[in-house]
Design a protein around this nucleic acid. Structure first.
Lengths: 294, 294
DNA sequence: CATTGCATTTTATGACTACAATATGTAATT
DNA sequence: AATTACATATTGTAGTCATAAAATGCAATG
């Protein structure tokens, strides 16, 4: 048993790429271009394309490479047929998170203990633990073992997180370096509009959540300050974990989405201060409504 | 060859503990208490105390434990005699940082490559790389290898960092949950006063830098919001790395220190808004002065 | 009764090997 | 000139073992 491959992830990436670029059947998919986009070599890209060929999404032409077989709009439909409902991403990560949230894991744990419990190799466990450490809800102790932090389990830190997000995003928008990116704004508008026009009833929870996060991260990215962007990305990864445990309240989505569109309007109209203030209340509002469920 | 011990680190911790608590000769140093304070078991604490006994800083009494042999003020003097100038903390970390700053390391590096280059075991390398990843200046690629980010090397991100700090610290102080901690304020005042009264000429660069960081982290900690505190801690770790490469300008220290004291005054007088605004310009001012040297 | 001192258990690192996945160089194709 | 197809080189993960360090249980001490 060697390592687990990245090519499944690449497969998903290609599908997303095709969709967000709204590509049409027959368009060429150059191998090197995809490899660069996903920061891997051509090897896993080829493996992914081979899989997609079997799924009927791309067509291979000898010595010319792979070509999209269906329009982007129809890729969606072709996907669930071939593979399980949703690819797993990192099962170990979620198992640890669930067990911690359920109180099945003590505050202090040793690596050996976790290896036995989840029956995984040390290297795999460490990879996941370090990922968790980056998200800030576990830390390595100086001697042996790891200690969970309260970030995940306490109600208070959940609210602190919303305050942090609201402040960071508002301030990012007020920075002198903030400059709306026309291209990204257009794409964001398209996604939010798709959500309003029925998407919020059919999209999966993960897709809705991702669209939401992308919107906010796109806004912060316009500040041109990587520290603000990194801070938001980090807390969003954390949020995803917690909010997966909350039954999504789809009735709130239309309002949320229209608020997003309103923010885009304000920024494009040059009313930045207003937009920032509105953004702040938008985020804090989301917190107030959801917390009773936790 | 097994792993490297944490007890040298514990030795340093005990010395710092004795100093910041201004303990006097003869005071008892309970083993379990120290172990709890540093989040390790009694084993490495005992090892550290044994070393300190040989250095003449503590005295062992059979079946009663260890007792401080000199006053906290004199610990300083006793230290450099026994051991090398400064304990290394993590040589690998600094070697990688130096080599990256000097342009000796490409943007993309593989683990094997680094293992050969620095002649360390994979586990040790990974530990350090993950630490660096947490600080945000390297990231794991999806396939093989790691990629350095621009955070360290670009002039722009250096300035972005100052903007981030200024905003975060100011906003932290303006949070409704902000509550000055009397104890910490008193200690901070003592340290800053010691600096003014000559400390800035005799203290080592590392000590001055640490005192500075502690001051700012203490302020943010008063916001009672861990996300703000974590963000500041993360960027401070990064700052330390870069500023170690700048010859410290000791002539600026008196002004910096008096500004710190001024901030404490304003907060204690309940003039929070003024304090926050002053804090903002204090940080941005530091940036403007230093950048020409980079 | 808290704390030490010591014996015992448990832990994590280093070193080695095997191998599938990833990365890359190069000739052939359009 | 860009891209593919294939062959080759390199990488990182998993597994196992030995061992020093860290954690822990408990009788002895003050």
């Amino acid at each position: 048993m060697a390592r687990q491959s990245v090519s499944p992830q690449i497969t998903a990436n290609i599908l997303e790429f095709v969709r967000t670029n709204q590509m049409r059947a027959g368009e060429h998919l150059p191998c090197q271009m995809l490899a660069d986009a996903f920061r891997v070599s051509r090897a896993p890209v080829n493996a992914a394309l081979k899989k997609l060929e079997m799924m009927g999404i791309v067509r291979a032409e000898p010595n010319r490479g792979y070509f999209l077989a269906v329009d982007a709009a129809n890729v969606e439909a072709a996907k669930p047929a071939g593979e399980p409902q949703r690819e797993e991403e990192d099962p170990l990560y979620f198992r640890i998170a669930e067990d911690r949230l359920a109180g099945k894991l003590e505050e202090r744990v040793s690596e050996n203990e976790l290896m036995r419990l989840y029956d995984v190799a040390r290297s795999r466990l460490l990879k996941t633990l370090h990922r968790i450490a980056e998200e800030g809800w576990i830390e390595r102790l100086p001697g042996n073992g790891w200690a969970f932090r309260e970030t995940l389990t306490s109600r208070q830190s959940y609210e602190e997180g919303y305050v942090f997000r609201a402040v960071i995003e508002q301030q990012a928008m007020l920075l002198p370096t903030f400059r709306p990116n026309e291209d990204e704004f257009r794409k964001a508008r398209a996604v939010q509009t798709a959500l309003v026009e029925g998407g919020y009833e059919t999209w999966s929870r993960a897709e809705i959540f991702k669209a939401n996060n992308n919107f906010h991260e796109m806004l912060v990215a316009c500040s041109q300050n990587d520290f603000f962007l990194d801070a938001i990305k980090r807390i969003n990864r954390l949020r995803r974990l917690i909010e997966y445990h909350i039954t999504i309240d789809r009735s709130r989505l239309p309002r949320q989405t229209s608020e997003h569109l309103h923010i885009l309007d304000l920024v494009e109209a040059g009313r930045r201060t207003e937009a920032a203030a509105f953004l702040y209340t938008h985020i804090m509002g989301a917190s107030r409504i959801k917390t009773p469920q936790v």
